[in-house]
Amino acid sequence: MSTPVLATPDVGPTGDTAPVKGGPTLGQRLTSFMPVIALVVLLAALTIADPDFLTQRSLTAAVRTSAPLAVLAAGATLVVLCGGIDLSIAALCSLTTVLFAMWLPDLGGLTTLAAIGVAAAIGAVQGLAHVVLRIPSFIVTLGGMSIFSAVALVISDAGPIRIVDRDATKWLTLYVGGVVPMSFFVAVLVVAAISLVLKLTPLESFVRATGYSESAARLAGTPVDLVKVAAFTVSGACAGLAAIMLVSRNFSGSPTMADNLLLPAVAAIVVGGTAITGGHGSLWRSLVGALVITLLRVGLPIVGVPSAYEQILYGAIIVAAVALTLDRSKVLIIK
């Protein structure tokens, strides 16, 4: 059928004037750039506290440390953008380090692909459980977290598995251009690739619509369920990739290796400014967030704060960042 022929409308006959207010306020603009500002301020503060900090060596070390965190956070950001949360990423990452270490002797060069593939599949299963059984994502992934941790403990006999053949992960310890650690380069590459796919295809519309208003997205005929399962799958794959990065650094797989990365990853997401309620945010923001968190992590000892205080900091950061970014006028009921 052809496009309906619509008469040229006469202009302005009605009292239906659009009360359009101004753009984002100064405060909103400032909030939007907050992560980058925080990063610069942190860097400056650390340099003042320890002038040696602004050297190539320590900066390189910092970004290398941030790589697994950035990848974990980036994957989970997709789930958050869809309006959910993935609490299983750290446990899944730990499990994958164990699987990688166990499979390496048999699979050799294919182990990396196999480990990431399995992690992605596990993420997909969680996504399906969320979508098909209609269970809230935080319950599904909380259950997943516990299950993956337990499985990792069982199959590894509750101990680290050393890696003898270090060639499989050697590529991640190289430097690009002699300066940028390969693991960080890969993290940036992953963020760029996913962001680009979102940007260039209708997927970004689908993800945002799902996150902002799932019912509206569904009634507009967007593939809500498919998008969510895909987000969990990517989140799983990213957990797998982060696992390879951790193994390359520690030369072993361990059932608890990444467990202490869950809180920093969530902190990285919210510090980056991605709305925990879904829709608003980006993977780039989480990358910046991961850098901020990493700087805090390496910076605390420099300014003389014992690392035992780290967890307090993460907890406070998450609450404060959400308090700053949450649009409370839209949230009627807090669960």
Partner: peptide, 12 residues
């Protein structure tokens, strides 16, 4: 709530 995605643009 159901008809539109408020924060998204007119075009999208």
């Amino acid at each position: 709530i159901e008809g539109m995605v408020g924060p998204m643009s007119v075009a999208d």
